[in-house]
Design a protein around this nucleic acid. Structure first.
Length: 341
DNA sequence: AAAACATCCAACCGCAGGCCA
DNA sequence: CTGGCCTGCGGTTGGATGTTT
Protein backbone atom coordinates (compact mmCIF):
# COMPACT_ATOMS: atom_id res chain seq x y z
CA UNK A 1 0.00 0.00 0.00
CA UNK A 2 1.38 3.33 -0.98
CA UNK A 3 1.82 5.95 1.63
CA UNK A 4 0.11 9.23 0.88
CA UNK A 5 2.65 11.81 -0.12
CA UNK A 6 3.06 14.94 1.87
CA UNK A 7 1.85 17.04 -1.04
CA UNK A 8 -1.22 14.88 -1.40
CA UNK A 9 -1.95 15.12 2.26
CA UNK A 10 -1.54 18.87 2.17
CA UNK A 11 -3.75 19.23 -0.85
CA UNK A 12 -6.46 17.10 0.68
CA UNK A 13 -6.32 19.03 3.90
CA UNK A 14 -6.48 22.34 2.08
CA UNK A 15 -9.23 21.38 -0.33
CA UNK A 16 -12.24 19.55 1.02
CA UNK A 17 -13.65 16.75 -1.09
CA UNK A 18 -15.52 18.02 -4.12
CA UNK A 19 -19.18 17.34 -4.40
CA UNK A 20 -18.62 15.74 -7.78
CA UNK A 21 -18.07 12.04 -8.02
CA UNK A 22 -14.40 11.12 -7.96
CA UNK A 23 -13.04 9.43 -11.04
CA UNK A 24 -12.95 6.12 -9.23
CA UNK A 25 -14.44 4.79 -6.08
CA UNK A 26 -11.46 3.53 -4.16
CA UNK A 27 -13.32 1.17 -1.87
CA UNK A 28 -13.17 -2.39 -3.09
CA UNK A 29 -11.07 -1.61 -6.14
CA UNK A 30 -7.80 -3.38 -6.80
CA UNK A 31 -4.55 -1.44 -7.03
CA UNK A 32 -0.97 -2.27 -7.77
CA UNK A 33 0.53 -4.53 -10.43
CA UNK A 34 -1.76 -6.05 -13.02
CA UNK A 35 -2.16 -9.79 -13.33
CA UNK A 36 -2.10 -11.59 -16.71
CA UNK A 37 -5.79 -12.38 -16.21
CA UNK A 38 -6.64 -8.71 -15.77
CA UNK A 39 -4.55 -7.83 -18.83
CA UNK A 40 -6.47 -10.36 -20.87
CA UNK A 41 -9.83 -9.08 -19.71
CA UNK A 42 -8.88 -5.51 -20.57
CA UNK A 43 -7.28 -6.32 -23.91
CA UNK A 44 -10.19 -8.49 -24.99
CA UNK A 45 -12.71 -5.86 -24.03
CA UNK A 46 -10.93 -3.08 -25.89
CA UNK A 47 -10.42 -5.31 -28.90
CA UNK A 48 -14.18 -5.81 -28.99
CA UNK A 49 -15.51 -2.41 -27.92
CA UNK A 50 -12.65 -0.05 -28.61
CA UNK A 51 -10.88 2.49 -26.41
CA UNK A 52 -12.58 5.23 -24.45
CA UNK A 53 -15.36 5.49 -21.89
CA UNK A 54 -12.79 4.55 -19.31
CA UNK A 55 -15.04 5.21 -16.39
CA UNK A 56 -17.57 2.58 -17.30
CA UNK A 57 -15.10 0.24 -18.96
CA UNK A 58 -13.88 -1.65 -15.85
CA UNK A 59 -17.38 -2.71 -14.84
CA UNK A 60 -18.30 -3.76 -18.35
CA UNK A 61 -15.03 -5.64 -18.75
CA UNK A 62 -15.40 -7.35 -15.40
CA UNK A 63 -12.41 -5.63 -13.82
CA UNK A 64 -12.12 -4.43 -10.24
CA UNK A 65 -10.03 -1.43 -11.28
CA UNK A 66 -10.72 2.23 -11.72
CA UNK A 67 -10.97 3.66 -15.22
CA UNK A 68 -7.78 5.61 -14.85
CA UNK A 69 -5.85 2.50 -13.98
CA UNK A 70 -7.31 0.68 -17.00
CA UNK A 71 -6.45 3.53 -19.33
CA UNK A 72 -2.91 3.70 -18.04
CA UNK A 73 -2.39 -0.04 -18.35
CA UNK A 74 -3.69 0.00 -21.91
CA UNK A 75 -1.82 3.09 -23.00
CA UNK A 76 1.53 2.19 -21.46
CA UNK A 77 1.61 -1.57 -21.78
CA UNK A 78 -1.15 -3.42 -23.61
CA UNK A 79 -1.61 -1.28 -26.71
CA UNK A 80 -0.37 -3.26 -29.73
CA UNK A 81 1.64 -0.28 -30.97
CA UNK A 82 3.70 -0.07 -27.79
CA UNK A 83 7.27 -1.01 -28.53
CA UNK A 84 9.03 -3.10 -25.92
CA UNK A 85 12.70 -3.32 -25.20
CA UNK A 86 15.70 -1.05 -25.03
CA UNK A 87 15.70 2.49 -26.32
CA UNK A 88 17.78 2.49 -29.51
CA UNK A 89 20.58 5.02 -30.06
CA UNK A 90 18.60 6.95 -32.66
CA UNK A 91 15.66 7.10 -30.30
CA UNK A 92 17.93 8.33 -27.54
CA UNK A 93 19.28 10.92 -29.91
CA UNK A 94 15.78 12.12 -30.70
CA UNK A 95 14.81 12.23 -27.04
CA UNK A 96 17.79 14.43 -26.30
CA UNK A 97 16.99 16.83 -29.09
CA UNK A 98 13.32 17.02 -28.38
CA UNK A 99 13.92 17.48 -24.67
CA UNK A 100 16.28 20.28 -25.41
CA UNK A 101 13.61 21.76 -27.59
CA UNK A 102 10.44 21.01 -25.66
CA UNK A 103 11.77 21.05 -22.15
CA UNK A 104 11.45 24.18 -20.09
CA UNK A 105 14.32 26.24 -21.39
CA UNK A 106 12.60 28.19 -24.15
CA UNK A 107 9.64 29.10 -22.06
CA UNK A 108 11.94 30.01 -19.25
CA UNK A 109 14.04 32.19 -21.46
CA UNK A 110 11.01 33.94 -22.86
CA UNK A 111 9.02 34.49 -19.62
CA UNK A 112 11.27 34.46 -17.15
CA UNK A 113 13.07 37.39 -17.70
CA UNK A 114 9.68 38.82 -16.90
CA UNK A 115 8.85 39.19 -13.31
CA UNK A 116 5.32 37.85 -13.15
CA UNK A 117 5.10 34.36 -11.86
CA UNK A 118 1.95 33.59 -13.79
CA UNK A 119 4.12 32.93 -16.79
CA UNK A 120 5.85 30.14 -15.00
CA UNK A 121 2.67 28.16 -15.13
CA UNK A 122 3.56 27.42 -18.72
CA UNK A 123 6.84 25.79 -17.89
CA UNK A 124 6.46 22.04 -18.29
CA UNK A 125 8.37 19.37 -20.03
CA UNK A 126 6.21 17.98 -22.80
CA UNK A 127 6.82 14.28 -22.42
CA UNK A 128 3.76 13.40 -24.44
CA UNK A 129 4.94 15.63 -27.25
CA UNK A 130 8.35 14.00 -27.20
CA UNK A 131 6.80 10.54 -27.10
CA UNK A 132 4.53 11.45 -29.98
CA UNK A 133 7.59 11.86 -32.17
CA UNK A 134 9.04 8.48 -31.25
CA UNK A 135 6.92 5.68 -32.65
CA UNK A 136 5.92 3.01 -30.18
CA UNK A 137 7.22 4.78 -27.11
CA UNK A 138 4.99 6.17 -24.41
CA UNK A 139 5.35 9.39 -22.50
CA UNK A 140 5.81 7.43 -19.30
CA UNK A 141 8.62 5.42 -20.82
CA UNK A 142 10.38 8.47 -22.20
CA UNK A 143 10.02 10.25 -18.89
CA UNK A 144 11.42 7.29 -16.97
CA UNK A 145 14.28 6.88 -19.43
CA UNK A 146 15.13 10.53 -19.13
CA UNK A 147 15.05 10.55 -15.35
CA UNK A 148 16.97 7.32 -14.88
CA UNK A 149 19.46 7.43 -17.75
CA UNK A 150 19.79 10.54 -19.83
CA UNK A 151 19.76 13.17 -17.11
CA UNK A 152 22.52 11.30 -15.31
CA UNK A 153 24.54 10.95 -18.48
CA UNK A 154 24.30 14.65 -19.16
CA UNK A 155 25.30 15.48 -15.60
CA UNK A 156 28.30 13.18 -15.90
CA UNK A 157 29.30 15.19 -18.96
CA UNK A 158 28.98 18.43 -17.10
CA UNK A 159 25.75 19.36 -18.88
CA UNK A 160 22.73 20.59 -17.00
CA UNK A 161 19.93 18.23 -18.04
CA UNK A 162 17.35 20.94 -17.49
CA UNK A 163 18.95 23.64 -19.59
CA UNK A 164 21.32 21.57 -21.76
CA UNK A 165 24.01 24.08 -20.98
CA UNK A 166 27.29 23.49 -19.15
CA UNK A 167 26.73 23.07 -15.44
CA UNK A 168 29.59 25.43 -14.68
CA UNK A 169 30.63 27.38 -17.77
CA UNK A 170 33.32 29.28 -15.87
CA UNK A 171 35.03 26.15 -14.71
CA UNK A 172 37.78 24.94 -16.97
CA UNK A 173 37.96 21.58 -15.25
CA UNK A 174 34.52 20.34 -16.16
CA UNK A 175 34.54 16.71 -17.17
CA UNK A 176 35.33 16.10 -20.80
CA UNK A 177 33.49 13.32 -22.58
CA UNK A 178 35.94 10.56 -23.20
CA UNK A 179 33.93 7.54 -24.23
CA UNK A 180 32.51 7.15 -27.69
CA UNK A 181 29.06 7.08 -26.13
CA UNK A 182 29.69 10.38 -24.41
CA UNK A 183 30.89 11.84 -27.67
CA UNK A 184 27.84 10.54 -29.37
CA UNK A 185 25.63 12.30 -26.85
CA UNK A 186 27.44 15.56 -27.15
CA UNK A 187 27.52 15.43 -30.92
CA UNK A 188 23.83 14.67 -30.99
CA UNK A 189 23.18 18.11 -29.60
CA UNK A 190 24.79 19.75 -32.61
CA UNK A 191 23.78 17.74 -35.63
CA UNK A 192 20.63 18.08 -37.67
CA UNK A 193 17.90 15.76 -36.52
CA UNK A 194 17.32 12.31 -37.89
CA UNK A 195 13.72 11.30 -37.55
CA UNK A 196 13.27 8.01 -35.80
CA UNK A 197 10.46 6.94 -38.03
CA UNK A 198 11.93 7.65 -41.42
CA UNK A 199 15.63 7.73 -40.72
CA UNK A 200 15.83 10.57 -43.21
CA UNK A 201 18.09 13.41 -42.34
CA UNK A 202 16.46 16.78 -42.58
CA UNK A 203 17.82 20.26 -42.21
CA UNK A 204 16.53 23.79 -42.16
CA UNK A 205 18.79 24.96 -44.90
CA UNK A 206 16.04 25.24 -47.48
CA UNK A 207 15.23 28.73 -48.62
CA UNK A 208 11.48 28.33 -48.82
CA UNK A 209 9.24 27.57 -45.91
CA UNK A 210 5.91 26.47 -47.30
CA UNK A 211 4.00 26.86 -44.06
CA UNK A 212 4.26 30.64 -44.16
CA UNK A 213 0.94 31.89 -45.43
CA UNK A 214 0.33 34.88 -47.69
CA UNK A 215 -1.05 36.77 -44.74
CA UNK A 216 2.09 36.16 -42.80
CA UNK A 217 4.14 37.09 -45.81
CA UNK A 218 2.24 40.33 -45.93
CA UNK A 219 2.96 40.96 -42.27
CA UNK A 220 6.64 40.79 -42.91
CA UNK A 221 6.45 42.89 -46.04
CA UNK A 222 4.50 45.60 -44.24
CA UNK A 223 6.88 45.66 -41.34
CA UNK A 224 10.06 47.51 -42.05
CA UNK A 225 11.86 45.74 -39.24
CA UNK A 226 11.04 42.29 -40.50
CA UNK A 227 13.13 40.55 -43.10
CA UNK A 228 11.33 37.62 -44.55
CA UNK A 229 14.09 37.02 -47.03
CA UNK A 230 16.55 36.84 -44.23
CA UNK A 231 17.09 33.24 -43.30
CA UNK A 232 17.78 34.23 -39.73
CA UNK A 233 14.38 35.80 -39.26
CA UNK A 234 12.65 33.21 -41.34
CA UNK A 235 13.91 30.44 -39.16
CA UNK A 236 12.71 32.26 -36.11
CA UNK A 237 9.39 32.80 -37.69
CA UNK A 238 9.10 29.14 -38.47
CA UNK A 239 10.15 28.32 -34.97
CA UNK A 240 7.44 30.50 -33.57
CA UNK A 241 4.90 29.13 -35.96
CA UNK A 242 5.89 25.72 -34.84
CA UNK A 243 5.01 26.48 -31.32
CA UNK A 244 1.84 28.21 -32.39
CA UNK A 245 0.78 25.13 -34.20
CA UNK A 246 1.65 22.91 -31.31
CA UNK A 247 0.08 24.91 -28.58
CA UNK A 248 -2.65 26.99 -30.08
CA UNK A 249 -5.75 25.05 -30.98
CA UNK A 250 -6.92 27.95 -33.09
CA UNK A 251 -3.85 27.89 -35.27
CA UNK A 252 -4.49 27.38 -38.94
CA UNK A 253 -1.74 24.80 -39.12
CA UNK A 254 -3.45 22.83 -36.44
CA UNK A 255 -1.95 20.12 -34.39
CA UNK A 256 -2.76 18.52 -31.13
CA UNK A 257 -0.48 18.59 -28.13
CA UNK A 258 1.33 15.50 -29.27
CA UNK A 259 2.45 17.32 -32.38
CA UNK A 260 0.16 15.38 -34.66
CA UNK A 261 -1.49 17.15 -37.51
CA UNK A 262 -5.04 17.88 -36.54
CA UNK A 263 -7.71 16.18 -38.54
CA UNK A 264 -11.17 17.30 -39.40
CA UNK A 265 -14.19 16.45 -37.31
CA UNK A 266 -14.89 12.78 -37.11
CA UNK A 267 -11.59 11.74 -38.58
CA UNK A 268 -9.53 9.23 -36.70
CA UNK A 269 -6.35 10.43 -35.07
CA UNK A 270 -3.14 8.46 -35.24
CA UNK A 271 -0.70 9.13 -32.46
CA UNK A 272 2.24 8.81 -34.80
CA UNK A 273 0.82 10.46 -37.86
CA UNK A 274 3.32 13.30 -37.96
CA UNK A 275 3.83 14.78 -41.39
CA UNK A 276 7.04 15.87 -43.04
CA UNK A 277 5.95 19.43 -42.32
CA UNK A 278 5.91 18.61 -38.66
CA UNK A 279 9.42 17.24 -38.79
CA UNK A 280 10.47 20.18 -40.88
CA UNK A 281 9.51 22.81 -38.39
CA UNK A 282 10.59 20.73 -35.42
CA UNK A 283 13.96 20.70 -37.07
CA UNK A 284 13.80 24.44 -37.37
CA UNK A 285 13.24 24.59 -33.67
CA UNK A 286 15.98 22.16 -32.90
CA UNK A 287 18.58 23.89 -35.04
CA UNK A 288 18.26 26.95 -32.98
CA UNK A 289 21.54 28.74 -32.58
CA UNK A 290 20.05 31.83 -34.13
CA UNK A 291 16.89 31.27 -32.11
CA UNK A 292 18.89 31.56 -28.92
CA UNK A 293 20.50 34.78 -30.07
CA UNK A 294 17.24 36.48 -30.79
CA UNK A 295 16.41 39.40 -28.54
CA UNK A 296 12.89 38.12 -27.86
CA UNK A 297 14.30 35.17 -26.06
CA UNK A 298 17.14 36.94 -24.39
CA UNK A 299 15.64 40.03 -22.88
CA UNK A 300 18.25 40.75 -20.28
CA UNK A 301 16.47 43.15 -17.99
CA UNK A 302 13.99 41.58 -15.61
CA UNK A 303 12.43 44.94 -14.89
CA UNK A 304 11.84 46.02 -18.43
CA UNK A 305 9.17 44.83 -20.76
CA UNK A 306 10.19 42.17 -23.25
CA UNK A 307 11.24 43.37 -26.64
CA UNK A 308 7.77 44.24 -27.82
CA UNK A 309 9.19 46.36 -30.60
CA UNK A 310 10.52 43.21 -32.17
CA UNK A 311 8.33 42.33 -35.13
CA UNK A 312 8.40 38.71 -34.07
CA UNK A 313 7.19 39.31 -30.57
CA UNK A 314 3.44 38.98 -31.16
CA UNK A 315 4.05 35.75 -32.99
CA UNK A 316 6.36 34.44 -30.36
CA UNK A 317 4.02 35.43 -27.58
CA UNK A 318 1.10 33.73 -29.24
CA UNK A 319 3.31 30.81 -30.03
CA UNK A 320 3.90 30.17 -26.41
CA UNK A 321 0.31 30.68 -25.48
CA UNK A 322 1.33 33.79 -23.68
CA UNK A 323 -0.73 36.36 -25.48
CA UNK A 324 -3.13 36.74 -22.61
CA UNK A 325 -0.30 36.96 -20.15
CA UNK A 326 1.41 39.48 -22.33
CA UNK A 327 -1.68 41.65 -22.67
CA UNK A 328 -2.67 41.51 -19.04
CA UNK A 329 0.64 41.71 -17.29
CA UNK A 330 3.58 42.35 -19.51
CA UNK A 331 2.71 45.25 -21.75
CA UNK A 332 4.34 48.49 -20.67
CA UNK A 333 1.01 49.87 -19.46
CA UNK A 334 0.17 46.71 -17.54
CA UNK A 335 3.58 46.76 -15.98
CA UNK A 336 2.99 50.36 -14.89
CA UNK A 337 -0.40 49.46 -13.47
CA UNK A 338 0.94 46.50 -11.58
CA UNK A 339 3.82 48.57 -10.30
CA UNK A 340 1.48 51.14 -8.83
CA UNK A 341 -0.59 48.51 -6.98
C1' DA B 1 24.87 -16.28 2.20
C1' DA B 2 22.77 -12.35 3.59
C1' DA B 3 22.26 -7.65 4.58
C1' DA B 4 22.54 -3.08 2.79
C1' DC B 5 22.29 -0.12 -0.78
C1' DA B 6 21.16 1.46 -5.55
C1' DT B 7 18.45 1.50 -9.58
C1' DC B 8 14.50 0.91 -12.41
C1' DC B 9 9.94 1.53 -13.99
C1' DA B 10 4.90 0.46 -13.53
C1' DA B 11 1.49 2.62 -11.37
C1' DC B 12 -0.44 6.19 -8.66
C1' DC B 13 -1.96 10.96 -7.83
C1' DG B 14 -3.72 15.65 -8.43
C1' DC B 15 -4.77 18.82 -11.66
C1' DA B 16 -6.13 21.10 -16.01
C1' DG B 17 -8.89 21.64 -19.80
C1' DG B 18 -12.33 20.20 -23.32
C1' DC B 19 -16.98 18.80 -23.88
C1' DC B 20 -21.72 18.98 -23.20
C1' DA B 21 -26.21 19.20 -20.93
C1' DC C 1 -22.92 30.89 -18.58
C1' DT C 2 -22.22 27.21 -15.33
C1' DG C 3 -20.93 23.06 -13.45
C1' DG C 4 -20.20 18.16 -13.74
C1' DC C 5 -18.01 14.53 -16.36
C1' DC C 6 -14.28 12.60 -18.84
C1' DT C 7 -9.76 12.28 -20.49
C1' DG C 8 -5.00 13.04 -20.55
C1' DC C 9 -0.76 15.02 -18.66
C1' DG C 10 3.38 15.34 -15.79
C1' DG C 11 5.40 14.67 -11.19
C1' DT C 12 6.14 11.30 -7.79
C1' DT C 13 6.20 6.95 -5.33
C1' DG C 14 7.59 2.50 -3.75
C1' DG C 15 7.96 -2.49 -4.74
C1' DA C 16 10.86 -5.41 -7.49
C1' DT C 17 15.19 -6.37 -8.98
C1' DG C 18 20.11 -5.90 -9.34
C1' DT C 19 24.61 -4.87 -7.26
C1' DT C 20 27.85 -4.26 -3.71
C1' DT C 21 29.75 -5.08 0.73
Amino acid sequence: MRKPTSSTATAEAAAPAKSSTPCCVKVGLKRGPWTPEEDELLANYIKKEGEGRWRTLPKKAGLLRCGKSCRLRWMNYLRPSVKRGQIAPDEEDLILRLHRLLGNRHLASLGFHCKYEVAFAFIRVRWSLIAGRIPGRTDNEIKNYWNTHLSKKLISQGIDPRTHKPLNPQSSDQPKPSSSKANHLQESLKEPIKTASSGLEETTSGSAHPIISNKENEYFQNNSNAHLDDQYHTDHFIASRGYTSLLNYDGSFGMDLRGNQRLGNGEAEDINSGTEDVFSFLNSLINEEAFQQHQIFNEPNVNSAPASSDPLFPIAATAFGLTAVWESTLTPSALDQNESK
